[in-house]
């Protein structure tokens, strides 16, 4: 066989500037944490706010991770995602109320088991709901963004109303499981136990998602499908099945996020998912469409910034995330780590 004559490619290391440019999104979180420390001054306040910001960011990431994959892989703008957050919260909290014996017991094992049971119940119901939503509402409007927005917003409203039919129109207040109440003191800072649990949950999910996406064939198919679905099909993979799987997984993750957020806020309402969608969309956009890593970094930035600004200048807290999105889009118009730039 003929090889290219004299073709001896060389690989050289990236220059310092290129390396920093590539790593910059990853450096933003530590830079923000350091800036927070310098601005706040008090170590204990900074530590409390940082853990709070990380916990908030992790929960937003859980809610946003599924949406970014649905956006990237299926090119679907799903405003109905917020409904899965609300349904997840209601199902999960109902499960926790039914497991009162476990949540009220002064046992960390039983308390965490109750939360896990609630999470599994929420994910099963929202996954199933996502499957139906994809078949009935999303499938007829593939490729038509305007119609997608209209029908998924319609779906969101219908599901919110159904929540009110099933669980009633009033908000539901709840208390966290016994051992997850209160705070631990570390370096003079009071850190809520539940926030630590949320950080652990979010980190575990991020690591699991990365492993699936980077180390498994199904992950490879999803990543390739985000870039060029037509070519993935030409290699023999049934991308429609992968679409459905990703939609179901994304809906289940939204349900998981709903349970976590409900426990964080200690109150749930039918409209809570819709309210969260603003932050979720900001995270998906600044992270870069289709990028789980981008969504993770974006969510941490949003969580940390909101907490720091709320402490330093409360009046600016509401606009801090919009300002962050504006700044990042001016720097990288396609988000920090876009995957679907070729589309």
């Amino acid at each position: 066989m003929t090889a290219a004559p004299g073709h001896a490619p060389k690989i050289s290391a990236l220059s310092m500037t290129q390396s920093i440019g590539k790593m910059m999104p990853l450096l933003l979180v530590p830079i923000l944490v350091v800036l927070g420390f310098l601005s706040i001054g008090s170590t204990s306040s900074w530590l409390t706010l940082t853990v709070s910001g990380l916990a908030m960011g992790m929960m937003i990431f859980i809610m946003a991770s599924g949406l970014t994959l649905v956006f990237g892989l299926m090119d679907v703008i799903n405003f109905g995602h917020g409904a899965f957050i609300s349904v997840g919260a209601y199902v999960g909290i109902s499960a926790l109320l039914a497991l009162e014996g476990w949540t009220g017991a002064p046992s960390l094992v039983l308390n965490v088991a109750a939360v896990l049971a609630a999470v599994v119940a929420a994910m099963c119901v929202t996954g199933l709901l996502g499957w139906g939503f994809e078949r009935v509402i999303v499938r007829p409007v593939y490729g038509a963004h305007l119609k997608q927005i209209l029908v998924t917003v319609g779906g969101l409203i219908v599901i919110e109303q159904l929540i009110q039919v099933v669980w009633g129109p009033d908000e539901i207040f709840l208390t966290r499981p016994e051992m997850l109440k209160g705070a631990v003191t570390f370096a003079g800072a009071a850190i809520e136990k539940y926030r630590l649990l949320a950080v652990v949950f979010g980190l575990a999910l991020f690591v699991a998602m990365r492993l699936v996406l980077k180390r498994t064939k199904i992950g490879l198919i999803v990543r390739a499908g985000v870039q060029n679905g037509e070519m993935v099909e030409a290699l023999g993979y049934r991308l429609k099945l992968v679409f459905i799987g990703v939609f179901v997984a994304g809906s289940a993750l939204a349900g998981l996020g709903g349970v976590m957020w409900g426990l964080y806020q200690e109150v749930i309402t039918a409209g809570m998912g819709e309210e969260m969608m603003i932050l979720v969309f900001i995270v998906v956009i600044i992270g870069g469409l289709g990028s789980v890593e981008g969504a993770f970094i974006g969510a941490l930035l949003v969580g940390l910034l909101q907490n720091y600004v709320a402490f330093l200048e409360p009046k600016l807290a509401l606009i801090s995330n919009i300002a962050l999105m504006t700044a990042i889009l001016m720097w990288r118009p396609q988000g920090m780590m876009p995957v679907v730039k070729a589309k």
Binding site: K217, L220, I221, R223, A224, Q227, M231, V232
Partner: peptide, 12 residues
């Protein structure tokens, strides 16, 4: 698949 490595393209 430009964001995948050569190896990943081949495995797929």
């Amino acid at each position: 698949f430009s964001d995948l490595t050569v190896e990943e393209n081949m495995v797929l």
